[in-house]
Design a protein around this nucleic acid. Structure first.
Length: 851
RNA sequence: GCCCGAGUGGCGGAAUUGGUAUACGCGAGCGACUUAAAAUCGCUUCUCUAAAGAGAUAUGGGUUCAAGUCCCAUCUCGGGCACCA
């Protein structure tokens, strides 16, 4: 063997690793529990037909480098792998070609596995999981039933985002700028009966525990904003009669009919009932019926506000167009206009609503009483008020809220100032929304707004017309999908349409094989056509199965726990195994900042509450890696023809080690990078030099590299601990350059191979084999780091003027150091007489003389 | 609009706690080996200057003995949210 031949040695080592099951995590009963454990995982991939791309390689290599690093440090390491296989691409392919998704998935997995092995990843292959395997999804269904039993999985009719291309509903987290996250089509609102997980029940805990997470700030901020906690108050406004004799006009028939017409369910018209319709747009759990109430024949409207201190300035109310009480507020003169507006705003796409920010709205014809002032104020509807947030109704304070101000200006509604803008305020907006002293606010005049918030809520509470309240932006998690290729929801319906859980001992509910994958026109999945499968008997009663399947995110919300006992047929996860391995120590991904990473936290908390998990956060440390763009800096895409195929890079002669090391060297792991076809050659040269040192160069008789060797061990070790891969590789390159200059020794070659192994495991194994060496991570000798002489920088007034070489001990001798420094011409001529001040910092080899 | 993050050679980037700016790699140039080329090995490579030296981390200010790093303002780019009351 004389030349570095990656193709040959990579094949050799991959075979050895396969045969010896080299990366199998230690069995629980054989573990020395005194040894530290490390559980690492990447976000498991969706195995697409295109195979691995360079982004996968970056993501998996990060996990691999750390896996090998900790393994070499003799920790107990768990590094599993799996496939997130339910999803639309396979189903769309099935619709187009008639090929069963089961088949396509099998092929794609085989391809992914083959490619991952070609990259030499240290994966415990005995733990491979696949979410569309019934052995796996049996337990996804079990998870669903646990949530269902506790009332955290519930069914509700509501308006939902509907993708007309993919023919399915989408969760809020899956709508991006009014478009489907998958296909990019513009989404629509559609009213359907849907399953939800009550993630809002954990809103506070999900929010409160973010700060303590060792996660990137970017993601923590995004999750905080997504949950969007707002503290404020809920205030009741009495509706007054609009015909002057104390009797509220309720045009039940007129408005009800027209309302139904305007919001006719597009899908299952037959399932919609009158009460469902009236309860309309309430997407949130448990809001139904408590938003507003008719009590003592008096109509009340509840609003949510974060600024109860401004209530004296509330000069009108605005309701969302879909608000269930709108039909009770209209009068014959306004009915037509109101109904028309309702219809229009429902039809309006989200895009139009975003683009056209000019306020629109109509007057309902009714008035309410401002409980603070006793004034009669008009009730309007407008689409700038969202049904899904707060109470779906607001008190408008146009003097101190930009949106209300615009609305008031457009429709000529009264604007009443209640906060005195402080004189020193530089806020020059048309409506002041900062803090200040209250005016025009009765007994609260002169109170600071900060104090008034609490006082006014207390005052309203005394009168029974308000209370403090916390509201969240986050909505419940919509989980039903009108798709075939997903995990069946373990539910069946009786004759009355009431849902019943499939008993746990009847799980899994197997996804039946069908021949026609096309959804039916009513928005139901192809499962609706599997007539035999649909029938099921529970407790002797004939029932019909649910035809919706679960959002794929449900399948991936618990896989990190399945990995600890992937073949367990008694439980979703083994209690002892979960106790030892979980939570995941390091989780690496490049996507799903909100959805997936919020969902796994939610399930973790739920299963902890149920006693199934001994921890409340699933991931200790999260690494979020950047994307790799094409050499032109643009996103790689088939259509642009700028895709770099990692397998081509390997096969072109560079090999997997070069590809892996290059992707770690390309830049900080958490930043985006552009592929550089030339720079990869530099990494290949580097590995070649490593090879030559061991197999081609002569061994030097003298060990001239003691300091460099120990410095390199220290640098690489510390860099891996702080996840700085690019600088670790740079340190190895420097070491190799030194060895070329000074000559190498066996110890140098072995040390280099050990430090290189996480990045280039095949090459490193080959070198270690030559020296018959283990791969245990080396430890540096602190005393070897001390050099004979040190170079000290001499600054004058903070500017570098000279460098002097001294013995290390002299660093502590201020007088001597100053004397030596002043001998330098370039220093002396800048100093007149005695220096004003001399500074010798502890941590730097530096002296600064102030002239 | 609001909230984050970032701006350093021809390029990717380094500088970890405020202490030698530009490590490492690419590209470029020169040389060695070679009939030649590739490969390989070595040297040079921020700007100005003949040199001594001086200046430079988006721009302008500030704090400090000392600022790429901290503070203020401005500009540019990237990401997130987007009528959330």
């Amino acid at each position: 063997m004389d030349r570095y031949n990656p193709a040959e040695i990579e094949k050799k080592w991959q075979k050895i690793w396969e045969e010896t099951e080299a990366f199998k995590a230690p069995a629980l009963n054989k573990i020395d529990k005194n040894q530290a454990k490390m559980y690492l995982a990447e976000m498991f991939p969706y195995p697409s037909g295109a195979g691995l791309h360079v982004g996968h390689v970056r993501n998996f290599t990060i996990v691999d480098v750390l896996t090998r690093f900790y393994t070499q440090q003799e920790m107990n390491v768990l590094r599993p792998f799996g496939y997130d296989t339910f999803g639309l691409p396979a189903e769309n392919y099935a619709i187009k070609t008639g090929t069963a998704p089961q088949e396509v998935t099998k092929e794609n997995i085989a391809n992914f596995r083959r490619q991952a092995k070609k990259l030499g990843f240290a994966i415990d292959w005995s733990r491979e999981i696949n979410t569309s395997n019934p052995e796996y999804y049996k337990w996804t269904q079990w998870c669903f039933l646990q949530l269902y039993k506790k009332g955290l999985a519930y069914r509700k009719e509501s308006y939902q985002w509907w993708c007309p291309v993919d023919q399915t509903v989408l969760a809020n987290e899956q709508v991006e700028n009014g478009h489907c996250w998958r296909c990019g089509a513009e989404v629509e609102k559609k009213k359907m009966k849907q399953w939800f997980f009550k993630i809002t029940a954990y809103a506070d805990e999900l929010l409160d525990e973010i700060d303590a997470l060792d996660w990137p700030d970017k993601i923590k901020t995004m999750q905080k904003n997504w949950i969007g906690r707002s503290e404020g108050a809920e205030i009741d406004f009495d509706v007054v009669s609009n015909n002057g004799n104390g009797q509220t006009f309720v045009s039940e028939t007129v408005s009800q009919i027209s309302y139904e017409k305007s919001v006719r369910p597009l899908g299952r018209a037959s399932e919609a009932t009158a009460s469902d319709t009236r309860d309309g747009g309430l997407a949130r759990a448990g809001l139904s019926g408590k938003t507003s109430a008719i009590s003592d024949n008096k109509l009340q409207i509840k609003v949510f506000t974060t600024r109860p201190d401004t209530i004296f300035g509330a000069t009108f109310l605005v309701l969302a167009p879909e608000h269930p009480l709108v039909h009770s507020l209209i009068i014959p003169q306004t009915a037509e206009k109101v109904n028309q507006y309702q219809t229009e705003s429902l039809k309006k796409s989200e895009i139009e609503r975003q683009e056209n920010k000019e306020k629109t709205g109509v007057f309902t014809g009714s008035y309410a009483i401002n409980p603070a002032t006793g004034e009669k104020i008009p009730i309007w509807i407008s689409d700038y008020v969202l049904m899904g947030y707060g109470e779906g109704a607001i008190m408008a304070v146009p003097a101190h809220d930009e949106r209300d101000f615009e609305f008031a200006e457009k429709f000529d509604l009264p604007i009443k100032q209640v906060i005195e803008k402080p004189e020193n305020s530089d806020d020059d907006s048309r409506c002041y929304h900062g803090e200040g002293e209250l005016v025009n606010s009765g007994q609260f005049d002169g109170t600071r707004t900060e104090d008034a918030r609490e006082q006014i809520v207390a005052w309203l509470e005394q009168q029974g017309v308000g209370k403090s309240k916390v509201t969240y932006r986050m909505r419940d998690w919509l989980i039903s999908r009108q798709r075939y290729w997903g995990c069946p929801i373990p539910i069946a319906y009786d004759k009355n349409g009431e849902p019943h859980a499939i008993p746990e001992d009847k799980l899994p509910v197997i996804l039946p094989e069908v021949t026609d994958y096309q959804p039916d026109k009513t928005g139901r999945s192809a499962l609706a056509k599997a007539t035999d499968w649909l029938k099921v008997e529970i407790d002797g009663e004939e029932m019909t199965r649910e035809t919706d399947t679960l959002d794929g995110y449900a399948c991936s919300s618990w896989y990190l726990w399945r990995y600890v006992s992937p073949h367990d047929d008694k439980a979703a996860w083994d209690k002892d195994a979960i106790k030892y391995w979980a939570p995941t120590d390091i989780y690496v991904g490049a996507d799903h900042a909100v959805a997936h990473l919020l969902y796994i936290r939610f399930w973790c908390k739920f299963f902890a509450d149920e006693g199934f998990l001994p921890f409340r956060e699933p991931v200790k440390k999260l690494l979020y890696n950047g994307y790799i763009n094409a050499p032109d800096g643009k996103k790689m895409s088939k259509s642009k023809g700028n895709v770099i195929d990692p397998l081509d890079v390997i096969d072109s002669g560079y090999g997997a080690d070069t590809l892996r090391t290059y992707e770690m060297f390309i830049g900080p792991y958490n930043e985006d990078a552009s592929w550089d076809t030339k720079a990869i050659g530099g990494v290949y040269r580097f590995l070649n030099r490593c090879w030559n040192l061991a197999f081609d160069k002569e061994i030097s008789k003298e060990d001239l590299n003691i300091t460099t060797r120990n410095k390199t061990i220290k640098k690489v070790t510390e860099d891996l601990h702080r996840v700085s891969f690019n600088t670790a590789v740079a340190a190895l390159m420097e070491y190799v350059n030194e060895l070329y200059k000074n000559g190498t020794t066996a110890e140098d070659n072995i040390t280099l191979a050990k430090l290189l192994k996480p990045f280039a495991p095949h090459l490193a194994s080959e070198i270690l084999e030559k020296y018959d060496s283990n791969d245990i991570w080396p430890v540096w000798d602190e005393s070897a780091l001390v050099e004979d002489t040190v170079e000290v920088v001499v600054q004058v007034n903070g500017k570098l003027r000279a460098k002097i070489t001294v013995f290390p001990d002299d660093l502590l001798d201020e007088e001597k150091l100053t004397e030596l420094a002043l001998k330098e011409d370039n220093v002396a001529r800048r100093i007149d007489g005695t220096p004003k001040k001399v500074i010798i910092p502890k941590n730097a080899k530096l002296i600064n003389i102030v002239a």
